[in-house]
Every structure is written in C-alpha cells, then in structure tokens.
Design a protein around this nucleic acid. Structure first.
Lengths: 233, 233
DNA sequence: AAACTCTACTTGTATATACAAGTATAGTCA
DNA sequence: TGACTATACTTGTATATACAAGTAGAGTTT
C-alpha cells in the first residue's frame, strides 16, 4: 500500500533523527531542499515539516529554518495516556517489567486515597515501564477490588493496567498531583538513576461512576522526562 | 494589524461555538461553504478547520464533514493562575522580591523560545514570590518588547508580570512543560532550599494574537509545592 | 422491500505559482 | 572598522486547480 508523499518525508526526517544523523538543535533540510530531494511540491514538503513541528519533534522559525527539537519525551499534562501507546506513538520500543502484583491490606493513607475503610484489602501492582530498553516510568498502583475484581489475574506485560481498567471501569473523573521528589533507593535503582536525582511524581486518582477505581503513583526520572500541555483561550 | 485569513476563519468558528450557535456534535460549515462565505481558497478554509481539529476543538471525517468536538475539560494544572491570587486565595500573605528587571540580548535558545531573531533585545524579569514570608516561586521571565513595550516601567511589587501581561497582551494560547530539576546555587539560595533538593520547573510560553508574549521559567521547591488538576469525562 | 447505481456532497492529497516577511551574510562605502 | 545595502536563503500565507477517496441519499430496478 502506498503512503502519502508527505508522510514519506516525515518518516525520512524521523528516521534521520532516530538513527542519530540529526541531533537536537540540528537544522533539517529546508522546504526547497526536500522538494528537490523528493520531487514534491513545496506545500507537500511544508506539510511534512509543519506536522512534525505540531508533534513537537521539530521547531520552525520564519527566515531561520527548521530544527530538531529537544529530544526528551513529553506527555500531556491533562490527558490520561496509556504509557505504552505514548511510547509507541514516538516510534520507540515499549516493554515493561512486573515487580509486584498482589492483594495487600490498605494503610490509613492508602485507604483514604481509594475512599475505602482502613484495613481494607486492595490490589497493588508495581511495574517498570521502559522506552527503548531504558526505564521511563515506575508505576505503583492501588486498585479497588470491588470495581476490578479480576485485576490480579491480568497479564500486565501484555496490557497496561491503565488499558485494562479503562475497559472494566470506564473513567468519569481523575485527579492529578505533580510534584518534584527524591525517591527512595529501591525506586532509584529500578529507574537506573542516582538517588539524589530529582524525579517527577504524578499521583493520579481515577474514578468511574461507581467510585474510586485506582490510585497510581508514577515516578519519572527528571533528566529523562517532561510533562507538557497546551491551552487555547 | 491585519490577521491572516485562515486565523479569521478560526476566530469565526470558535466564536460560533462560544456563543452557543454551534454545540458539541454539530456540523460546522464545510470547506466549500467557508470559501464562499469568506472569499478564500479552499486550502485556506481547510487550514483553519484542520488547525482547529489539531487543537481538538473540531473533529473531521473524510466524506462526512467537520463537527464540534466534545467540550474539553480545563484543569487547573493548565490554568494560568496569578501566583499572588493563588496565595491569597489560600488565606496566606503574599509578597515578592524583585531580583532583576532589564533589557537583555537574547541567546539562540531564548530567541527561539520567543520566536524572535537571535541577538534580539528582550526584556527579562526575575522575581521571588513568597507565601507567608517563605519563598514559593522563583520566576525568570523573558518578554517580547514589541508586545509589551512598557514592561520595564512597571512596578512588579504591586502587580505581577502575569497580571500586567494579561492586560496589555491578552492570551490566546499557552504551552506548558513541567519537569523535575535540581537548580543552580543562586536559585536554591533564593528559594531557601538546599541545592540538592528537587524543584518543579514549569516552563510556560504564552501567546497573544500578535505572537509570543513571554517565556517564563518558574521554579518551585519540591518539598513545598505541588501542581494539581482535575479532569471530568 | 431490497439491492444497486448515480449524484452530490464531503474531506484528503497534491501541484504550481506568487508574494510577504524574516534572517544571515557578503560586499561596499565612508 | 562600522554601518549600510543587496542578495540569497529561509519560512509564512495564499490562490487556483485537479484528482482521490469517503459518505449519504435519491432514484431505479428487480
């Protein structure tokens, strides 16, 4: 099947970046260079570059040129994205390691986070999500067993907790808290960072119609991850 | 100053939605209808609709049409809050210290952040915002002198840069990036934290109709500040 | 009544062309 | 040596045109 010519140019540019021929800050071929190289119109070349700019892979400046953007991954501040989909959407390899999957007794804080009684049994999963073999996110999640009774029987190497929970308890609400923290030694080890390095911690509480579904603590190495968002007025 | 024709069409569509003439799910005028109504080419009409689609204000389907998207929730994670108002809303005392207010020559990176030429003169302000006498936010901001020519003559002890810029260059767009960082010694000193402590860094680029207004780097001590947000579906 | 065809609409991709606006650099002049 | 100008590049906006592909609905045929 034939892909559109503008998409072929995008693939070429992304390929150059991924193979290391173009580094952040490097200038990419101009619209005129691409029209010569690919035998397309300038508007087709322009569309390819403009879309990569919209995707924040490139940055463009009138009169100056088009450059490779800062490489560090960034996800939307608001949207609840499936980390696997997010990594794959960047054209990168995703895999994860399962660290823990068990029923546990909720502490006072944990019970409060899930709006359950202290001492309740809750499900807990701990996973390490990796991009291109490098740890990106340490996910420590508590789940309400009432709303996802089969949680412990899932294979989270095949499907993220997020994807599974979206199926069995569709979201109606979510709360986020973002903070900068230093993590404990075991999380630092898992993320392959020094324990003095700052991490982004996103605490996310998600609800369905029937109540709080899960409370996830997500840790990202500060030097390898950023959250982004865009507002219009 | 004249705005581009594609932008005028975007404004029209957004205006129709905001005034309630177009509701989520409603079909918006087709490309052909817009070219007749606005006397533009189909590609110009198309660009307006395509950008609104990229911004998730509209959804498009080949052969079907263009429709108003479901209203997106807006979270305080992204809201541009005036730090003074935020602190006062908590019933706390706000004051700030002015560290720097000057015209500077933009580096390559700074120029790109403001969509200006390298070496351009830009305005820079550095302020320390405090809650109950304790530093909460270190604000390092670059401002486009064209859009706020009187910036250097303001008294930012009386009115935050945010408040002032909202008056002289009303916002139409903003981008945020949130990351966890360790800050340089001078910022750590100002924030009254140890330089090994993690900080939240929010990079915020704000635009008005006429272009990029400012690029602010906001640093918050990780142990004293969290960003929060709420989503509804 | 169901299936098929045709028409009229829609968006998607693409080209050629033109002018505007921004930027950097080389060359010239004082 | 610095200022100025011209040139050559860049991206930004816009038009006219053409064909491809998708969709819905009206009309026709079986």
């Amino acid at each position: 099947m034939t892909i559109p010519r503008f998409a072929r140019i995008k693939e070429f540019i992304v390929g150059q970046i991924e193979q290391g021929f173009l580094l952040p800050g490097d200038q990419v071929p101009s619209e005129n260079q691409l029209l010569e190289q690919f035998g397309v119109s300038r508007m087709t070349a322009r569309r390819a570059l403009q879309e990569l700019s919209d995707e924040q892979i490139l940055v463009r400046a009138q009169g100056l040129g088009t450059f490779v953007a800062d490489a560090r991954p960034m996800s939307s501040l608001l949207e609840i994205k499936n980390i696997a989909d997010e990594i794959r959407a960047r054209g990168h390899n995703y895999h994860c390691d399962l660290i823990l999957l068990d029923a546990v007794t909720a502490s006072a804080q944990q019970a409060m986070d899930l709006s359950l009684a202290e001492g309740s049994t809750v499900f807990r999963s701990v996973l390490l999500h990796c991009e291109n073999g490098l740890p990106l996110q340490y996910e420590d999640r508590l789940v309400n067993p009432v709303l996802a009774p089969d949680y412990l029987h899932q294979d989270f190497l095949l499907q993220t907790p997020n994807a599974y929970l979206s199926e069995v308890a569709p979201l109606t609400e979510a709360d986020h808290i973002v903070e900068a923290v230093c993590v404990e030694e075991s999380i630092a080890l898992a993320l392959e960072i020094d324990s003095s390095q700052p991490c982004l911690k996103v605490s996310r509480r998600t609800c369905s119609k029937r109540g709080v579904v899960s409370f996830a603590s997500l840790f990202y190495p500060g030097n390898r991850y950023r959250l982004g968002g865009h507002l219009n007025f």
